[in-house]
Simulated scan of single mutants.
Amino acid sequence: MSVKWEGVFPAVTTKFTAEDELDIPAFVANLEAQLAAGVDGIILGGTLGEASTLSDEEKFELVRQTVAFVDGRVPVILNIAEQTTAKAIEVAATAKKNGVSGLMLLPPMRYKADASETVAYFKAIAKSTDLPIMIYNNPIDYRIEVTLDMFEELTACANIQAVKESTRETSRVTEMINRFGDRFKILSGVDTIAFESLVLGADGWVAGLVCAFPAETVAIYRLVKAGRIAEAVAINRWFYPLLQLDVHPKLVQNIKLAELMTGLGTEQVRLPRMPLEGEERERVLGIIENALQKRPVLPEVEVADLV
């Protein structure tokens, strides 16, 4: 199916059993909650998905399970985070065979490629497939920034259509629109500034806390796009302490604890990550419990109202 690159795209977590195997029932239960809330796509294999700890077999098992469960209701996107161009091209081809709708691309892993090398990497993958692509621009965590000049070069690839904007600079939304118009769809990749990015014209939100709070995330997006800013502001202010859990080295553990507390997952992570303990766990639990006690009643927003 085609990818519209608009709306809320959860970067879903990977669920594990106590025996460190994929927990498919828990994974599918979370997918069901996401779809029920009205999300617009599913992203697999990102940081929240603990992709670096997954074997290729596990990664594509998650792809197959997701594609089968979603059954065409929303696009399924696979993140590619590889060390070599050849491997990235191989993953893209396998992803297509397994039914994904599109790809999200990080720059090469480990090696800090320069601008020309990074552009060449993206172009080689784009030329190898007809799947639509979203570039993941996260220089804070992955050391390589995809600059405006680099995006200029990437306009040559028609299937590079969007950016997950995670520079943590809201000004980048305006800079991208001023330079490229609607050539690239812009999806905010940082929970704490997603509201502001949407107001500035971002087309969507690749979200993290949505894994535990799907309805609230979708409500903020839809209210902004319906022009009901004051209502969106109120929900975002309630949500903000939770959203801050996404911009932390232990975002996976934080969000999985939130999933546990909302009945949408478990705390199981894969080594080298370990579940939160002691004072750190109590602090995060306190944030989650306080939010749950004050959880807002959400207004209805019809999809037809979105502009």
Rank of each mutant, 00 (worst) to 15 (best):
A18F: 10
R64Q: 14
R270M: 13
A124M: 14
Y142Q: 06
M274D: 11
K87E: 12
C157V: 09
L35K: 06
V70E: 05
E216Q: 08
V247W: 05
I193N: 07
T167M: 14
M150W: 05
S171D: 15
N137F: 08
A226V: 03
D182V: 09
D114W: 15
E231Q: 09
R179Y: 09
L306E: 08
G201K: 15
L54V: 11
T66F: 01
A232I: 03
F9R: 09
K294V: 07
I80H: 00
A93E: 11
P139W: 10
N290W: 10
M134W: 12
D203M: 08
V224N: 00
F195Y: 04
V218A: 01
G189R: 09
D114P: 07
A291N: 01
P132Y: 09
E279Y: 03
A291I: 01
Y121E: 05
G208K: 04
V218G: 04
R281C: 07
A234G: 08
L35E: 04
R283I: 06
L271M: 08
K87P: 04
L260Y: 02
I287R: 02
K87S: 08
V74N: 05
S52F: 11
A18P: 08
L103M: 02
R295A: 14
M150E: 10
G46R: 05
T118L: 05
V163Q: 12
I140E: 08
D130V: 07
L276I: 06
Q83K: 14
Y121I: 04
